[in-house]
Simulated scan of single mutants.
Amino acid sequence: MIQEVSSQGLYVGSNAELFLSKDAIFTTNNTIVEVDDNGTFSLEAGSDWGSDMEFVNGLVTVYGTGETKLPVGDNGVYAPVMMNHTGDVTAKYSNAAPSNGTNGTDVDAVSDVEFWELSGTAVVTLPWNENSDITTLVNDNGGALSSVSIVGLNGGVWDLISASRSYTVTGDLLNGSVTSDLNNEVNLNGYGQYTFGIDHQVVLSVNDLFLSTGISLLSNPVKAIEENVRFSTSGEIVKLKVSIYDINGRLVKYFDKVDLSLGEGSLSKSNLKSGLYFVKFEHEGKQGVKKLIIE
């Protein structure tokens, strides 16, 4: 058991175990903990250790019952799992495409970017960031952020791990999280891999901004000589809010109450350098995101 330690370049070798109590003062001085396939990095239930600079590349085990952050990551991507769990749990993250499988009942699509391996019994929360490309997953499958769910692979079939429309979604398309049914723990031993999916029933029930107005960018890529980013809608909208984010998820421009004329609008691209951006449109609680390229 470690109560207080400062380390750098930490490696947990084969048949070795590093255990941190929940109150341990621990830092790796902004380096990643590497764990051998036969090694163990373990935490006491209730631990909140981990950050985007200090996390574990390998399997994390938690002993006990409680609400715990499992600080897993891979290939420079931090993807911590939050679990409200009964008994011991484990998590491991892979920044790679999950196994192929067919979509089960009420699953419209499955992410092809990343996956987790989990065990135990818990209410589980998975996070996403710009690396996760939730923008494409959502916009290619009905345009409803609230349709994002957690799916698990069982016998070659990707199924929802909680009942349809029972998930809690927070954040936006660039940074957010989804939590399984808050009232029912999931037996995580029943699935080999976990990732993000689209809940078919939510897509059916949501009147989304893109479905109802058909927002589209009129010029994409936007050429260097153009002063504005132009877009159109198939329906009339007043007081449209628009945010532009860079590839790292930083807000670089915000427009409040954008006016449209004959179904078309424009956004000044001044101070936007060449590169990839994300344009988020918001209106009356509905939202959608489009990818934008500035030449």
Rank of each mutant, 00 (worst) to 15 (best):
V5F: 09
V5S: 08
S6L: 08
S7D: 11
G9N: 09
L10P: 01
L10E: 10
G13W: 13
K22V: 04
D37R: 12
D37G: 14
T40S: 09
L43I: 05
V56C: 05
N57P: 05
N57I: 15
G58W: 02
V62S: 03
Y63G: 06
G64F: 06
E67A: 10
T68S: 09
N75M: 10
V77W: 02
V81H: 01
M82A: 10
M83Q: 07
M83G: 04
H85Y: 14
G87D: 13
A91C: 09
K92R: 08
A96H: 06
A96G: 07
A97N: 08
P98F: 02
V110Q: 00
W116R: 01
E117Y: 14
L118H: 01
G120S: 06
G120H: 07
T125D: 03
W128N: 03
N129K: 04
E130T: 12
N131M: 03
I134H: 11
N141D: 02
G143N: 03
L145C: 05
S147Q: 13
S147L: 13
I150H: 01
S164Q: 12
L173T: 01
L174W: 15
N175F: 09
S177W: 15
D181Y: 11
N183H: 10
N183K: 13
N184I: 10
N184P: 08
E185V: 11
E185G: 15
N187D: 12
Y191M: 07
Q193H: 04
D199N: 11
V202C: 06
V203Y: 05
V206D: 13
D208K: 09
S216D: 14
S219Q: 05
N220T: 00
P221E: 00
K223H: 04
A224K: 07
I225Q: 11
V229K: 00
V229M: 03
R230P: 02
T233A: 14
T233V: 13
T233D: 01
G235F: 13
V238R: 11
K239C: 09
L240P: 00
L240K: 01
I244Q: 00
I244R: 00
R250K: 15
Y254S: 15
F255N: 02
F255Y: 06
L267V: 07
K269Q: 04
K269Y: 02
S270T: 12
S274G: 06
S274R: 11
L276V: 11
L276R: 07
F278H: 03
V279T: 00
K280R: 10
F281K: 00
E284H: 13
V289M: 11
I294G: 04
I294F: 15
I294S: 02
